[in-house]
Simulated assay, not measured.
Amino acid sequence: MISAMSGVRVLEIAHYIAGPQCCQILADHGAEVIKVEPPDGEMGRRAQPVHDGDSLYFAANNRTKRAITLDLRSEQGKEVLHELIGRADVLVTNYANGVPDRLGFGFDEVHRINPRAVMVHITGFGRTGPYSSWVAYDGIIQAMSGLADMTGEPDGAPTIAGPFVADNVTGMQAAMAAMLGLLARERTGRGQLIDVGMLDSMFPLLAHHLSVAAAGIGEPTRWGSALPTNYSGLYPAGDGWVYIAPITPKMWESFSALLGHPEWAEQEAAERGWRVRERERIDAQVVEWTRGRTKAEVVAALQADGVVCGPVQSVADLVSDPQVRARGIAVEVPLRDGVHATVPGPALRLADTPARSPGRPPGLGEHTDEVLAQLGYSAERISALHRDNVTGRAS
């Protein structure tokens, strides 16, 4: 099967989420990804949660790759790495600024070895600016990007989102960067350095909120689950919560009639914004209606009348959700000893060049001998690298 990125060789020198997630997206769509790790493995391999000895954190970000271990502090390790660079289309790293240069894969060196290689360098704050030397993790970027300040209840504290939003959004941006770099290479014949900052990657999420703040016409901050500009929000059902958003005039008319208050639609038609100003009074009656029904009953009634709504689901609910199952959004990947992990699958559906079936995450150094042999190394030379601990494995 031909996928969109088939024939593209990617060299991953990355850890944790942003870099590995970028390369996993490329691997899902056909790229050959070789993951280069230090002899004791990248730090994500030891990250919690662990299931039967395997990190589920690692499994969720590293499927369908090949893994090689190299000591890049050694000259022999750098020599092998340079040969891999010579055959790569893309190099992805999320090592801190300065580290790639120290380990022999700064862009100048990459470009000297392979002028056609695209290098995607992910850092917390980019390669320039007063914070460029700062190390960042997901929570730091959520805090500094405005996301935490805009999340939570109006009278509550800033809140860090449960999922690693900054890491994963950056991984997506980096995957797009790699593809843009390859597209540009088709026109110029040359690779380039692409500077991906985690803080930069979060800015598109701010959208018009940034415009409002810059214009001095407001200060976007926390408003909980209710939109400040329209009528929507979370409401308690008898067995959980539902999100209801009768935003359009037609939906508001249907919603008002369903709850036995057709006058609400008349008031909103006469005074635009009335439902927002009267939210507290309307909410009390909506809650009375939703509390007497299950989530499924609320959703069924509203959907039947064309009102946008949905149940609040836990992550555990999603495992058996019929839409998730029908779309194949969650996939099982094998680990070891017959154990499987359920992880998020490819998000995109390409009709003619579909993503390939997800493979398992590689064992530490699992493909070292295979990759070295493909570089033309003899069995004796491979054994010597093992003996000298260049690959972290003495013979």
Rank of each mutant, 00 (worst) to 15 (best):
D89Y: 01
G181W: 07
R336I: 02
G363V: 00
H82A: 09
V196N: 11
A257G: 01
G77T: 03
W134K: 10
W289S: 10
G7A: 15
K65Q: 12
L375H: 03
N61M: 13
D337F: 00
T93W: 03
H209S: 15
V331D: 13
A300H: 03
G216M: 06
I13A: 05
R9T: 15
F58E: 14
R277A: 07
S378E: 06
A96K: 14
V92A: 09
L81R: 02
W289Y: 07
W274V: 01
H82T: 03
M43Q: 14
H261N: 08
G146M: 09
W223T: 10
H29C: 14
I85G: 00
D337R: 05
M1W: 05
D283L: 02
F255W: 03
E271A: 05
D89I: 06
G273Y: 02
A394Q: 07
I217L: 10
A4M: 14
S211C: 04
Y235T: 06
Q313Y: 06
T188N: 06
V298I: 12
H15W: 14
A67K: 02
N168V: 11
D28P: 11
G162I: 01
G345F: 08
D138G: 10
T64L: 13
G392F: 01
E12Q: 11
G189I: 04
T221I: 04
M176N: 12
S395I: 02
V319W: 04
Y131D: 12
G156R: 09
E75A: 15
D52Q: 14
V135W: 05
T391A: 04
P246G: 08
I140D: 13
D352N: 15
P220T: 03
Q285W: 03
D352P: 03
C23G: 12
E153F: 05
P228S: 08
A67F: 02
Y377H: 10
F164A: 15
P334F: 02
G77A: 03
G292C: 07
R387P: 00
Q285F: 02
A296V: 07
M43N: 13
F58H: 15
F107N: 07
T342F: 04
K295Y: 00
D54R: 13
P154A: 06
V343P: 13
F164E: 12
P358D: 14
